[in-house]
Nucleic acid binder design. Structure first.
Lengths: 150, 150
DNA sequence: CTACTTGCAAATGCTTTGCAGGAGA
DNA sequence: TCTCCTGCAAAGCATTTGCAAGTAG
């Protein structure tokens, strides 16, 4: 896979580095999960992971995801339809949002125009400020039906 | 700005009507939950419900919430920090978003400028269209620290 | 050697459900 | 009287954790 966003090649080294900072190792199991998230390009569920990595016990998958999350490499995504999903941390993938299918649960990554993001950031900053709220990030999900389910 | 969208007084009759459409009754337990959601003004957890309605068994609370959701009166909210919360359906409260505290889980309702919402709707519509996705609604949550936790 | 990993099985904890008695229409 | 509602206890399930063996450094 040569035509990737250039960060893909570095992701593994970033992963190793961040894990080391937490005195943890970048083992095959963890690497397999990062690779899977990398190639998926959208949030995946435990089911997805279990079916694509049959030899990785679920308990290990859960543990790895927790560890990777602590290391700032993975982020939990609440699809809304109670199926916890996981994706690479935003600083590894870039800021994006999700199209969530209410029927099949499929989640697709999308990027909004930067002009929109800027206005959103402004509106959010002002609102948060008024509420004494310290905003860290935001998530914008579009709910509806995917091409296959509509 | 009196944030009473005038629907508050009618909410109970709307609830009764919608439940009847599903051959269900607007019983005291269900009414208590609707009242609680109405007065809370923000998403509440099962814990909140249990503590404020001590005589309502959790199993009944869960069942009621499921029924109310089916009747289009209540919506499940994924706060992100795995504590399912519930709020009144958007057509009863008006479109709004959430400030989610990453520390204590508190969720506050906020309303964004209509100009922003319009631009958001446009950006979303175009994107969804390109993806063959049929957008129904969107949710925008701001994650950070509330005034008490910052 | 010492510390981090992992699998398996057991334990959790939230949520759902089977049933039988109650209550509204 | 028929159907829906409720409580309690039991069941389900996704997720977490204790433990002991495995392995990287």
């Amino acid at each position: 896979m040569t035509t990737m966003t250039s960060t893909s090649g570095d992701t593994h080294s970033v992963a190793e580095r961040r894990l080391r900072q937490a005195d943890q190792r970048y083992t095959p199991g963890r690497r397999a999960i990062i690779s899977l998230l990398l190639s998926a390009g959208h949030p995946v569920s435990i089911e997805d992971i279990a079916s694509q990595l049959p030899d990785l016990p679920r308990s290990s998958a859960y543990r790895h995801l927790t560890d990777l999350e602590s290391a700032g490499l993975v982020r939990r995504v609440a699809a809304g339809d109670e199926f916890t999903r996981f994706e690479l941390a935003e600083d590894l993938t870039g800021h994006h949002h999700h199209l969530v299918c209410l029927n099949c649960g499929k989640v697709t990554d999308v990027i909004l125009p930067s002009g929109f993001e800027q206005q959103a950031a402004r509106a959010i900053a002002r609102l948060a400020d008024e509420a004494g709220f310290q905003a860290h990030s935001h998530r914008l999900d579009v709910l509806g039906l995917c091409a296959a389910c509509r």
